[in-house]
Measured scan of single mutants.
Amino acid sequence: LETFPLDVLVNTAAEDLPRGVDPSRKENYLSDEDFKAVFGMTRSAFANLPLWKQQNLKKEKGLF
């Protein structure tokens, strides 16, 4: 999966995202380093959170 810089994904409308980016899964296009910096946890820890908590975190970080 291709990764993009944080500033390309945060608070970006679906139509302005790079081609192929799923707007409902912007976090998947962050590098592992950016993911950890944004969410303060690994991808696996994030995946283990309840869906509502994942969505709330994504909203807080501008990735929803």
Rank of each mutant, 00 (worst) to 15 (best):
D7Q: 11
A37L: 14
G40P: 00
A45T: 11
R25M: 10
E27Y: 01
D7R: 08
Q54P: 00
R25N: 09
V8C: 11
L9W: 01
V21P: 02
Q55A: 11
T42H: 07
P50T: 05
N56E: 15
F64A: 15
E33F: 10
W52H: 10
L63M: 08
Y29K: 02
N48S: 15
Y29D: 03
T42A: 10
A13G: 09
F64E: 15
V38H: 05
E27I: 05
W52T: 09
S44T: 13
E60F: 06
T12H: 09
F46V: 00
F64L: 15
V10E: 05
D16V: 06
L1W: 15
L30P: 01
M41C: 07
A13Y: 06
T3Q: 09
P23K: 07
E60Y: 06
N56K: 15
T12S: 12
L17Y: 06
A14P: 14
S44R: 11
L17G: 04
L1Q: 13
S31A: 07
L57E: 03
V10G: 02
G20T: 10
G62H: 05
P18R: 03
D7M: 08
L9Y: 02
L6W: 08
N56C: 15
E2A: 12
A14T: 13
V21M: 07
R25S: 08
L1R: 13
L51F: 13
L6Y: 13
F46H: 00
S44Y: 13
D34V: 09
D22W: 02
L49C: 03
D7C: 13
D32T: 07
Y29V: 02
F46D: 00
L9Q: 02
T42N: 12
K36H: 15
G20E: 09
V8G: 03
D22H: 05
A14W: 12
A45H: 11
L9H: 03
D32Y: 05
Y29G: 03
G40E: 12
N56H: 13
G40T: 04
N56F: 11
S31V: 03
G62S: 03
F4G: 03
F39L: 07
R19G: 11
K26W: 05
S24I: 08
M41I: 08
V38Q: 03
K26P: 06
A47N: 12
G62C: 09
L30N: 01
F39K: 00
M41A: 01
L63N: 03
S24K: 11
L1D: 09
E2C: 15
E27H: 03
